[in-house]
Amino acid sequence: MIDCAQVRAMLRRGETPGGPEVAAHVSTCPACSELIAAPGIAGGLDAIASAATGDIDALLARTKARLALEQGWRARVRASSTGLRNAIAALVIVGIPLLVLVTSPRADLGVYPAMRLIGEGLAYVLTALAAAVLALWPLHATERPTARVGTAIAAIGAAIVIASWPAAHHDHPAALAGAGADFVPRALGCLMYGTICGLPVWLALRVLTRRGATLGGDAWLVAFAAAGSGAAAVFLHCPIAYVGHRWAGHVAVLVVLAAWAAWHVYRGRER
């Protein structure tokens, strides 16, 4: 059976494709059907078929000058395989909450329902991992158009649901703090703690991404990854059950890092 290439060749020769084979192809190819119905389009497109390519030697020289700047450990890291870059990112994203869990776990760890603890921790970490994978997504692979929006919704949704969820227990004195006069200092403390825990993820992803100096729209993904890891860390550290504290101290980590991302994107557009 005839194919698109043969139809294009006939149109370029000024012929009008016809016959049973063309009819069979056109029945499955609406694009060729349109081209055959309006053969003048072929001529119009061929009028710009050979746009000039500029001075290719000069372009090569400029490109090689840019490549010559690709030196040092940062260049080596971002040129490593996507599998390795994802593994490093995952190590940082998972490692920080685990480090917090080992070194300064929440005081009520013994009475907190285990399955809920694992579920909430995983929700933060998995959304952070998803955001990191998309931030490090290689340009030579096609990305699902809904992946970014889906990850953003999942990251924001996880933070909101976990913060708004009824308290798991009131069986530990540490869970009752942060609701009165110490609301502001404790909320600020958690906000700083979570943001600082998220910073290594931000820095790691900046080094690992192949975009280089400007993150562009990927800054949002980097922020969600950093916020997910930071929020997981503060969740594993802070036992306070008061919903207002969890919003102001825990969800605000996401807000601060998202604001940082917005500033990056704005600055990138200004350039």
Partner: peptide, 27 residues
Amino acid sequence: AHRGYGRLRAELEAAGVTADVLRHYGG
């Protein structure tokens, strides 16, 4: 592609470029 080619044709016709003129530049 079908929609694109169709829209391209419509855009060119709206600009006063007829099929005969276009055919002159192709093939």
